[in-house]
Amino acid sequence: MLLIDPSKKLSFTQYIRDGDLVIVYEKHDSMKAIKACETSVLQNRFGVFKHSDWIGKPFGSKVFSNKGGFVYLLAPTPELWTMVLSHRTQILYIADISFVITYLEIVPGCLVLESGTGSGSLTTSLARAVAPTGHVYTFDFHEQRAASAREDFEKTGVSSLVTVGVRDIQGEGFPDEYSGLADSVFLDLPQPWLAIPSAGKMLKQDGILCSFSPCIEQVQRSCETLRSNFTDIRTFEVLLRMYEVREGKMDCGQGDEGVSLGSPPYKRRQCSNESRKVHENTSSPVVMARPCGESRGHTGYLTFARLKCH
Protein backbone atom coordinates (compact mmCIF):
# COMPACT_ATOMS: atom_id res chain seq x y z
CA MET A 1 0.00 0.00 0.00
CA LEU A 2 2.80 2.41 0.87
CA LEU A 3 5.89 3.16 -1.15
CA ILE A 4 8.31 2.31 1.59
CA ASP A 5 10.91 1.18 -0.87
CA PRO A 6 11.09 3.86 -3.58
CA SER A 7 12.55 1.38 -6.04
CA LYS A 8 9.22 -0.44 -5.97
CA LYS A 9 6.90 2.42 -6.75
CA LEU A 10 4.22 -0.17 -6.71
CA SER A 11 1.13 1.81 -7.03
CA PHE A 12 1.41 3.76 -10.05
CA THR A 13 3.85 2.72 -12.58
CA GLN A 14 2.91 -0.74 -12.15
CA TYR A 15 0.61 -3.30 -13.29
CA ILE A 16 -1.25 -5.76 -11.15
CA ARG A 17 0.97 -8.69 -10.29
CA ASP A 18 0.23 -12.09 -8.89
CA GLY A 19 -0.15 -11.68 -5.12
CA ASP A 20 -1.00 -7.95 -5.13
CA LEU A 21 -3.73 -6.64 -2.88
CA VAL A 22 -6.46 -5.15 -5.06
CA ILE A 23 -9.53 -3.15 -4.10
CA VAL A 24 -12.42 -4.37 -6.24
CA TYR A 25 -14.80 -1.46 -6.74
CA GLU A 26 -18.42 -2.17 -7.69
CA LYS A 27 -19.80 1.18 -6.58
CA HIS A 28 -18.87 3.76 -3.99
CA ASP A 29 -20.44 1.83 -1.13
CA SER A 30 -19.59 -1.62 -2.36
CA MET A 31 -15.93 -2.56 -2.41
CA LYS A 32 -13.87 -5.56 -1.48
CA ALA A 33 -10.17 -6.26 -0.87
CA ILE A 34 -8.81 -9.25 -2.74
CA LYS A 35 -5.36 -10.76 -3.23
CA ALA A 36 -4.84 -11.34 -6.94
CA CYS A 37 -3.98 -14.96 -7.52
CA GLU A 38 -3.35 -16.47 -10.95
CA THR A 39 -5.65 -19.42 -10.35
CA SER A 40 -8.50 -17.74 -8.44
CA VAL A 41 -11.79 -16.32 -9.53
CA LEU A 42 -14.07 -13.68 -8.04
CA GLN A 43 -17.72 -14.47 -8.13
CA ASN A 44 -20.32 -11.78 -7.47
CA ARG A 45 -23.69 -10.65 -8.77
CA PHE A 46 -22.03 -9.43 -11.97
CA GLY A 47 -20.68 -12.87 -12.84
CA VAL A 48 -17.35 -14.67 -12.63
CA PHE A 49 -14.10 -12.72 -12.88
CA LYS A 50 -10.87 -14.59 -13.56
CA HIS A 51 -7.91 -13.11 -11.66
CA SER A 52 -5.69 -14.18 -14.52
CA ASP A 53 -7.42 -11.50 -16.63
CA TRP A 54 -6.39 -8.89 -14.08
CA ILE A 55 -2.71 -9.65 -13.89
CA GLY A 56 -0.70 -7.34 -16.12
CA LYS A 57 -3.42 -4.68 -16.28
CA PRO A 58 -2.75 -1.28 -14.70
CA PHE A 59 -4.46 -0.43 -11.40
CA GLY A 60 -7.53 1.66 -12.20
CA SER A 61 -8.63 -0.70 -15.00
CA LYS A 62 -12.15 -1.84 -15.69
CA VAL A 63 -12.40 -5.63 -15.96
CA PHE A 64 -15.24 -7.79 -17.22
CA SER A 65 -16.87 -10.99 -16.04
CA ASN A 66 -17.98 -13.96 -18.12
CA LYS A 67 -21.43 -12.32 -18.29
CA GLY A 68 -20.15 -8.92 -19.37
CA GLY A 69 -20.55 -7.31 -15.95
CA PHE A 70 -17.69 -5.13 -14.80
CA VAL A 71 -15.79 -3.87 -11.78
CA TYR A 72 -12.81 -1.53 -11.33
CA LEU A 73 -9.54 -2.63 -9.78
CA LEU A 74 -7.95 -0.01 -7.55
CA ALA A 75 -4.64 0.24 -5.75
CA PRO A 76 -5.21 0.11 -1.99
CA THR A 77 -4.88 3.29 0.09
CA PRO A 78 -5.59 3.70 3.80
CA GLU A 79 -8.88 5.42 2.88
CA LEU A 80 -10.02 2.52 0.70
CA TRP A 81 -8.80 0.04 3.29
CA THR A 82 -10.95 1.72 5.97
CA MET A 83 -13.97 1.06 3.76
CA VAL A 84 -13.24 -2.63 3.16
CA LEU A 85 -11.57 -3.93 6.31
CA SER A 86 -13.37 -6.45 8.45
CA HIS A 87 -14.86 -4.82 11.52
CA ARG A 88 -13.71 -6.59 14.64
CA THR A 89 -14.55 -3.46 16.63
CA GLN A 90 -16.10 -0.07 16.00
CA ILE A 91 -13.63 1.78 13.78
CA LEU A 92 -12.50 5.33 13.14
CA TYR A 93 -13.45 6.94 9.84
CA ILE A 94 -11.75 9.43 7.60
CA ALA A 95 -12.92 12.68 9.23
CA ASP A 96 -11.60 11.70 12.65
CA ILE A 97 -8.54 9.93 11.24
CA SER A 98 -7.36 12.83 9.11
CA PHE A 99 -7.88 15.34 11.90
CA VAL A 100 -6.02 13.15 14.40
CA ILE A 101 -2.97 12.82 12.12
CA THR A 102 -2.67 16.57 11.60
CA TYR A 103 -3.48 17.52 15.16
CA LEU A 104 -1.01 15.02 16.61
CA GLU A 105 1.60 16.60 14.30
CA ILE A 106 2.64 13.21 12.99
CA VAL A 107 5.25 13.51 10.25
CA PRO A 108 7.70 11.07 8.65
CA GLY A 109 10.11 9.71 11.25
CA CYS A 110 7.81 10.03 14.28
CA LEU A 111 7.41 7.36 16.94
CA VAL A 112 3.73 6.89 17.75
CA LEU A 113 2.01 4.78 20.42
CA GLU A 114 -1.57 3.60 20.04
CA SER A 115 -4.04 1.65 22.17
CA GLY A 116 -6.24 -0.19 21.38
CA THR A 117 -5.44 -1.47 17.98
CA GLY A 118 -9.03 -2.48 17.31
CA SER A 119 -9.52 -3.25 13.64
CA GLY A 120 -6.45 -1.26 12.63
CA SER A 121 -8.28 1.45 10.68
CA LEU A 122 -6.42 4.33 12.29
CA THR A 123 -3.19 2.31 12.57
CA THR A 124 -2.92 2.08 8.79
CA SER A 125 -3.12 5.87 8.48
CA LEU A 126 -0.64 6.32 11.33
CA ALA A 127 1.76 4.04 9.46
CA ARG A 128 1.36 6.10 6.30
CA ALA A 129 2.13 9.28 8.25
CA VAL A 130 5.32 8.03 9.94
CA ALA A 131 6.72 6.32 6.81
CA PRO A 132 9.43 5.79 5.73
CA THR A 133 11.58 6.03 8.86
CA GLY A 134 9.17 6.24 11.81
CA HIS A 135 7.30 3.51 13.64
CA VAL A 136 3.91 2.82 15.20
CA TYR A 137 3.69 0.63 18.31
CA THR A 138 0.09 -0.38 18.79
CA PHE A 139 -1.37 -2.40 21.68
CA ASP A 140 -4.57 -4.34 22.22
CA PHE A 141 -5.42 -6.54 25.20
CA HIS A 142 -7.32 -8.97 22.99
CA GLU A 143 -4.90 -11.58 21.73
CA GLN A 144 -6.92 -12.79 18.75
CA ARG A 145 -7.69 -9.24 17.67
CA ALA A 146 -4.00 -8.34 17.80
CA ALA A 147 -3.20 -11.40 15.69
CA SER A 148 -5.82 -10.48 13.09
CA ALA A 149 -4.49 -6.93 13.00
CA ARG A 150 -0.98 -8.28 12.41
CA GLU A 151 -2.26 -10.36 9.51
CA ASP A 152 -3.98 -7.30 8.06
CA PHE A 153 -0.83 -5.16 8.29
CA GLU A 154 1.05 -7.95 6.54
CA LYS A 155 -1.59 -8.01 3.83
CA THR A 156 -1.59 -4.24 3.30
CA GLY A 157 2.19 -4.10 3.34
CA VAL A 158 2.63 -1.78 6.32
CA SER A 159 3.99 -4.41 8.71
CA SER A 160 7.53 -3.01 8.61
CA LEU A 161 6.17 0.23 10.09
CA VAL A 162 3.86 -1.26 12.72
CA THR A 163 4.45 -3.48 15.75
CA VAL A 164 1.38 -4.97 17.40
CA GLY A 165 1.68 -5.87 21.08
CA VAL A 166 -0.78 -7.69 23.32
CA ARG A 167 -1.07 -5.63 26.49
CA ASP A 168 -3.68 -4.13 28.77
CA ILE A 169 -2.64 -0.49 28.58
CA GLN A 170 -5.30 0.67 31.08
CA GLY A 171 -4.03 -1.85 33.60
CA GLU A 172 -0.30 -1.94 32.95
CA GLY A 173 0.48 1.25 31.03
CA PHE A 174 2.77 1.35 28.01
CA PRO A 175 6.05 -0.59 28.18
CA ASP A 176 8.86 1.35 29.88
CA GLU A 177 11.17 0.92 26.91
CA TYR A 178 9.33 3.73 25.08
CA SER A 179 9.59 6.09 28.02
CA GLY A 180 10.30 9.63 26.81
CA LEU A 181 10.52 8.51 23.17
CA ALA A 182 7.01 9.01 21.81
CA ASP A 183 6.19 12.01 19.65
CA SER A 184 2.48 11.27 19.93
CA VAL A 185 0.14 8.91 21.75
CA PHE A 186 -3.37 7.92 20.69
CA LEU A 187 -5.85 6.37 23.12
CA ASP A 188 -9.13 4.73 22.22
CA LEU A 189 -9.98 3.06 25.51
CA PRO A 190 -13.10 2.79 27.66
CA GLN A 191 -11.34 4.38 30.65
CA PRO A 192 -8.65 6.53 29.08
CA TRP A 193 -7.90 8.34 32.37
CA LEU A 194 -6.27 5.15 33.63
CA ALA A 195 -3.74 5.23 30.77
CA ILE A 196 -3.05 8.98 30.78
CA PRO A 197 -0.30 8.96 33.44
CA SER A 198 1.60 6.29 31.49
CA ALA A 199 1.05 8.16 28.22
CA GLY A 200 2.57 11.23 29.88
CA LYS A 201 5.67 9.18 30.77
CA MET A 202 6.06 7.97 27.20
CA LEU A 203 5.82 11.36 25.53
CA LYS A 204 8.67 13.67 24.71
CA GLN A 205 8.34 17.21 26.09
CA ASP A 206 5.61 19.08 24.21
CA GLY A 207 4.52 15.75 22.69
CA ILE A 208 0.83 15.41 21.99
CA LEU A 209 -1.78 13.00 23.26
CA CYS A 210 -5.16 12.32 21.74
CA SER A 211 -7.98 10.44 23.40
CA PHE A 212 -11.03 9.34 21.45
CA SER A 213 -14.19 8.75 23.48
CA PRO A 214 -17.81 8.42 22.41
CA CYS A 215 -19.23 9.68 25.71
CA ILE A 216 -18.90 13.11 27.26
CA GLU A 217 -18.50 11.59 30.74
CA GLN A 218 -15.31 9.89 29.55
CA VAL A 219 -14.08 13.21 28.20
CA GLN A 220 -14.89 14.97 31.45
CA ARG A 221 -12.91 12.50 33.49
CA SER A 222 -9.98 12.40 31.04
CA CYS A 223 -9.68 16.17 31.08
CA GLU A 224 -9.58 16.22 34.87
CA THR A 225 -6.69 13.76 34.79
CA LEU A 226 -4.92 15.61 31.99
CA ARG A 227 -4.82 18.91 33.89
CA SER A 228 -1.97 17.87 36.16
CA ASN A 229 0.69 17.21 33.50
CA PHE A 230 -0.70 18.48 30.25
CA THR A 231 -1.49 21.83 28.76
CA ASP A 232 -3.35 23.12 25.69
CA ILE A 233 -6.19 20.67 26.41
CA ARG A 234 -8.77 20.90 23.65
CA THR A 235 -11.81 18.79 22.82
CA PHE A 236 -13.38 18.57 19.36
CA GLU A 237 -16.07 16.83 17.46
CA VAL A 238 -15.50 16.32 13.72
CA LEU A 239 -18.16 15.24 11.26
CA LEU A 240 -18.68 15.12 7.53
CA ARG A 241 -21.78 16.07 5.65
CA MET A 242 -22.12 14.28 2.32
CA TYR A 243 -23.81 15.69 -0.75
CA GLU A 244 -25.82 14.12 -3.54
CA VAL A 245 -25.44 15.56 -7.00
CA ARG A 246 -27.86 15.06 -9.81
CA GLU A 247 -28.94 16.63 -13.02
CA GLY A 248 -32.58 17.57 -13.25
CA LYS A 249 -35.00 20.07 -14.64
CA MET A 250 -36.73 22.70 -12.69
CA ASP A 251 -40.25 23.58 -13.68
CA CYS A 252 -40.75 27.26 -14.18
CA GLY A 253 -44.15 27.06 -12.52
CA GLN A 254 -46.43 27.38 -15.58
CA GLY A 255 -46.76 23.81 -16.69
CA ASP A 256 -48.45 21.06 -14.72
CA GLU A 257 -45.95 18.43 -15.77
CA GLY A 258 -44.27 16.79 -12.80
CA VAL A 259 -40.72 17.79 -12.02
CA SER A 260 -38.09 15.17 -11.46
CA LEU A 261 -37.10 16.78 -8.19
CA GLY A 262 -39.19 14.50 -6.06
CA SER A 263 -38.08 11.30 -7.75
CA PRO A 264 -35.78 8.90 -5.97
CA PRO A 265 -32.21 10.17 -5.70
CA TYR A 266 -29.06 8.56 -7.00
CA LYS A 267 -30.43 7.43 -10.32
CA ARG A 268 -28.67 10.19 -12.10
CA ARG A 269 -28.46 8.82 -15.59
CA GLN A 270 -32.01 7.53 -15.74
CA CYS A 271 -33.40 10.67 -14.23
CA SER A 272 -31.76 12.98 -16.64
CA ASN A 273 -32.76 10.85 -19.60
CA GLU A 274 -36.36 10.74 -18.54
CA SER A 275 -36.57 14.41 -17.93
CA ARG A 276 -34.90 15.09 -21.23
CA LYS A 277 -37.74 13.27 -22.97
CA VAL A 278 -40.48 14.95 -21.02
CA HIS A 279 -39.15 18.45 -21.13
CA GLU A 280 -37.48 18.28 -24.49
CA ASN A 281 -38.37 21.81 -25.48
CA THR A 282 -38.52 23.58 -22.15
CA SER A 283 -35.69 24.59 -19.82
CA SER A 284 -32.24 23.01 -19.98
CA PRO A 285 -31.21 20.58 -17.25
CA VAL A 286 -29.29 21.89 -14.27
CA VAL A 287 -26.86 20.17 -11.96
CA MET A 288 -28.02 20.36 -8.37
CA ALA A 289 -26.58 19.33 -5.04
CA ARG A 290 -28.12 18.70 -1.67
CA PRO A 291 -26.98 17.10 1.56
CA CYS A 292 -27.73 13.38 1.89
CA GLY A 293 -30.77 12.71 4.02
CA GLU A 294 -28.99 10.54 6.52
CA SER A 295 -25.53 10.72 7.95
CA ARG A 296 -23.40 9.76 10.88
CA GLY A 297 -24.46 12.07 13.70
CA HIS A 298 -21.74 11.25 16.20
CA THR A 299 -18.55 9.22 16.28
CA GLY A 300 -16.70 10.40 19.35
CA TYR A 301 -15.03 13.34 21.01
CA LEU A 302 -11.38 13.95 20.29
CA THR A 303 -9.44 15.39 23.21
CA PHE A 304 -5.91 16.65 22.53
CA ALA A 305 -3.32 17.78 25.05
CA ARG A 306 0.39 18.62 25.10
CA LEU A 307 2.79 17.38 27.71
CA LYS A 308 3.99 20.36 29.76
CA CYS A 309 7.60 21.42 29.34
CA HIS A 310 9.75 21.33 32.43
Binding site: F236, E237, L239, L240, M242, Y243, V245, R268, A289
Partner: peptide, 30 residues
Amino acid sequence: ATCMHNLQLGKMAIGLQISEPWLREYQVLP
Protein backbone atom coordinates in the same frame (compact mmCIF):
# COMPACT_ATOMS: atom_id res chain seq x y z
CA ALA B 1 -21.28 19.80 -8.25
CA THR B 2 -20.83 20.68 -11.91
CA CYS B 3 -17.31 19.32 -11.87
CA MET B 4 -18.49 16.06 -10.30
CA HIS B 5 -21.26 15.72 -12.85
CA ASN B 6 -18.88 16.25 -15.76
CA LEU B 7 -16.41 13.70 -14.37
CA GLN B 8 -19.25 11.19 -14.17
CA LEU B 9 -20.42 11.87 -17.70
CA GLY B 10 -16.86 11.61 -19.02
CA LYS B 11 -16.30 8.38 -17.04
CA MET B 12 -13.02 9.87 -15.90
CA ALA B 13 -13.25 8.97 -12.23
CA ILE B 14 -15.05 6.81 -9.70
CA GLY B 15 -15.76 7.01 -5.99
CA LEU B 16 -16.83 10.62 -6.47
CA GLN B 17 -18.05 12.30 -3.33
CA ILE B 18 -18.67 15.85 -2.20
CA SER B 19 -18.24 16.30 1.52
CA GLU B 20 -18.36 19.24 3.87
CA PRO B 21 -16.33 19.07 7.07
CA TRP B 22 -17.86 20.23 10.33
CA LEU B 23 -15.81 20.99 13.41
CA ARG B 24 -17.02 21.91 16.87
CA GLU B 25 -14.87 22.64 19.88
CA TYR B 26 -15.99 22.06 23.46
CA GLN B 27 -15.29 23.74 26.74
CA VAL B 28 -14.71 20.92 29.20
CA LEU B 29 -14.81 22.05 32.83
CA PRO B 30 -16.25 20.51 35.98
